[in-house]
Amino acid sequence: MLADASNFVHSVDSTFTIIVAICVFFLVLITALMILFVFKYNSKRNKKAENIHGSLPLEITWTVIPVILVLYMFYLGWTGYKQMTDAPKNSMIVDVYGQMWSWSYKYPNGVKSDTLFVPINKPVKLMLHSRDVDHSFYVPAFRIKKDVIPDRINTEWFLPKRLGSYDVFCAEYCGLRHSYMYSEVVVLSQDQYDKWMAGKLSDNDKE
């Protein structure tokens, strides 16, 4: 379920790994020192405490090092995010409609569907429309999410890199059947996609 399915997966996952590693380091350090001190300076072993009021060099150390680290982590998050905002010019544009409690999609040629079909390795830009309340278009496997807000068109884009079908959730609570507001993105090869689209067009002709 955490497949390497879009162009953002690598960047998000590596940022996550780096930041989690830094966090785990500090958690282990703090916890280990805490446990060590509680045992070593337990009143049974250490009858007399020493009053140490503080240490300016230490305060500076544990202020400056975290500041440098958080600036680095900020930079990772910011650059990762910048990629998500700049959709390539040649992206296929799909309109996404969120409503209580379902998703629907409209392709550039006017074809509509309830499942999002996209060809592999072609960038897709989603124009997000809400017909009622706030929703959020969330594809965990692609590492993308954007709120879908009435009277405002948000966008998000992705480059599908692996064939298969992936869960689409609504991530912004929207009432009774919020958790059933579920859809799928199906990534097809260009051939399959063209066939699907042709089938859809002929269905439309029949109607």
Binding site: V12, Y81, Q83, Y138
Partner: peptide, 16 residues
């Protein structure tokens, strides 16, 4: 874990 979510690209994935 708040720091993890302070990074925007991760927050986009993890929020909500």
């Amino acid at each position: 874990t708040g720091i993890i979510q302070g990074a925007i690209s991760l927050d986009i994935y993890l929020t909500d």
